[in-house]
Simulated assay, not measured.
Amino acid sequence: MFATYFNCLAVILGSLLGLLLRDRIKPAYQEVVFASAGLVTLVIGVSMALKTGSYLILLFSVVLGGFVGYALHIEEGLLALGAFAQKRLGKKDGNNEQKASNFALGFLNASILFCSGAMSVVGSIQAGTTGDYQLIMVKSVMDGCMAIILSAAYGPGVIASALFVLVYQGFFTLTGSFISPILGEGGINELSAVGGILLLMIGFGLLDIKKFKTGNFCRQ
């Protein structure tokens, strides 16, 4: 679990640095932050989605996951959780509702970004079965850098995504010897491809092109 703990620490440190920079970024330059994060997220999403071995499977996974997610109202639940966390942890003011929404969006988008790639699954399985931490260490550095950008855009909700990283990657680390033969290389690629679609949704939202309820698609 050492590699997963290191990944969480990288996310937390990156988020804290982003929050410090956020206070120094003039409102006029915030568009630059969102545009940069959105474009990079789109590039990552496209590269991941193209790894699919079957576009029919990819389409079926996204549609089925979306149906289930909308039926369970996952996105609304996350936004409600963000509002609750903001009320408990933040100061009460006129912008509290907007802050709660940003908290939830930061947590949601960062969690998807940090856990949607094949590196999360493969790296965690390698760490748990062979003790090879190299892939997760590389991913940790990448996540830390993206956490700076996302927290500068969304705020402290990105820090909370470290908990999701801990649970998600910890699961594959502890159960890697059982999960790896079931998924296989093809299964991991398809999992990564679906994650790429989710990142495209996030990217479009950051660029203010189209707002998707990305959380509702996280049941694939």
Rank of each mutant, 00 (worst) to 15 (best):
A153Y: 07
T175P: 06
G106A: 10
A153T: 02
V121W: 11
V141M: 10
Q134E: 07
Q126C: 00
A160T: 15
M142R: 00
C145M: 14
G155H: 05
F172W: 15
G144D: 11
Y133C: 05
A160I: 15
L108N: 15
A100I: 02
I136M: 13
L105S: 15
L113M: 09
C145L: 15
I149M: 14
S161T: 00
F164A: 04
A104M: 13
D143H: 00
F172K: 10
V158K: 07
S161I: 02
V158Y: 09
I148G: 01
M146P: 12
K139R: 05
F103G: 02
D132R: 04
Q126A: 02
Y168D: 14
L108D: 13
M137P: 05
A100N: 06
V121L: 12
V122Y: 08
G128P: 12
D132E: 11
S124I: 01
S111N: 08
F114E: 03
S161K: 05
I112P: 05
G176L: 13
G157T: 07
I125P: 07
V158T: 06
M142S: 00
G117K: 11
T175W: 14
Q134K: 03
Y168I: 14
E97A: 14
Q126P: 02
D143Y: 06
G176E: 14
C115R: 00
A147E: 13
L150K: 03
F172E: 13
G157S: 08
L135F: 03
A152Q: 00
V165R: 08
G123S: 09
K139C: 03
G155L: 02
G131V: 07
